[in-house]
Amino acid sequence: MAIVAAGSIGAGLLGSLTGLGGGIIVIPLLTLALGVDIRYAIGASLVSVIATSSGAAAAYVREGFVNIRIGMFLEVATVSGALLGAFAAAYIPASAIAVVFGLVLLYSAYVGIRGYGADNPVVAPDNLATRLRMNGAYPSAGGVRLYNVRSVVPGMGLMAFAGILSGLLGIGSGALKVIAMDRIMKIPFKVSTTTSNFMIGVTAAAGAGVYLNRGYVDPVVDLPVMLGVLAGSLVGSRILTKARTGALRVIFAIVIALVGMEMMYKGLSGRF
């Protein structure tokens, strides 16, 4: 139980810093290190995602990092994508998709490392984003910084794709959410990761009823996961406020490279 709690603190810490769910730590910790059945681990991963999201987002929203409008708008795309993906799961070879997803993540990690250090420059305001009042401001070391948002429609497209993947593969899709906001919509990195953090809880909650009914959610397994992840995400949200964007980008790139390799391995070994 202590091992699970300690690992979960790490998961919450990493999840709150990168905008991902923390399943990448919780699932291998439970299944590989402790021999817990994968179905209990999936339930625990869901709990971890919601705990990271709610725990850290409480701070991120209050401090003005999260762009609530962008979050709400893109949730339409991810949640409907997730519904579609779960429906399509019966007809689509998930292993092939996992390999493609893995390649996308590895490429994104490479691009992220190469362009490391810099945050997105302020872009010219986009017509649609302006009409949707998405342009915002966020706190930084040099005071409040304004930013504009671009390419709302392509961004939403990638979000829907992220949702489909999460429905299809049963994984959180925080990585693609961050990439869509950071790379396509040109939103500042910290706003991208915190807004992703804000959104992943909703995508996860959409699937929660099923896992609860199937008996994947065990109180004894999930108690240390939940408390550990909450503690980790509180610490992580303190760190992110002060952290340099360049450092956060490196952490993000390393984590998505690991997720990408895991996806390719699982896809190629036919474990989906």
Binding site: L46, V47, I50, A51, S53, S54, E75, G201, V202, A204, A205, A208, L212, V217, P219, V220, D222, L223, M226
Partner: peptide, 16 residues
């Protein structure tokens, strides 16, 4: 404990 987990799962829904 399970009720605590259900409350946690409901947090994003209540937030919406």
């Amino acid at each position: 404990i399970q009720l605590g987990l259900v409350v946690l799962i409901s947090v994003p829904i209540v937030r919406v």
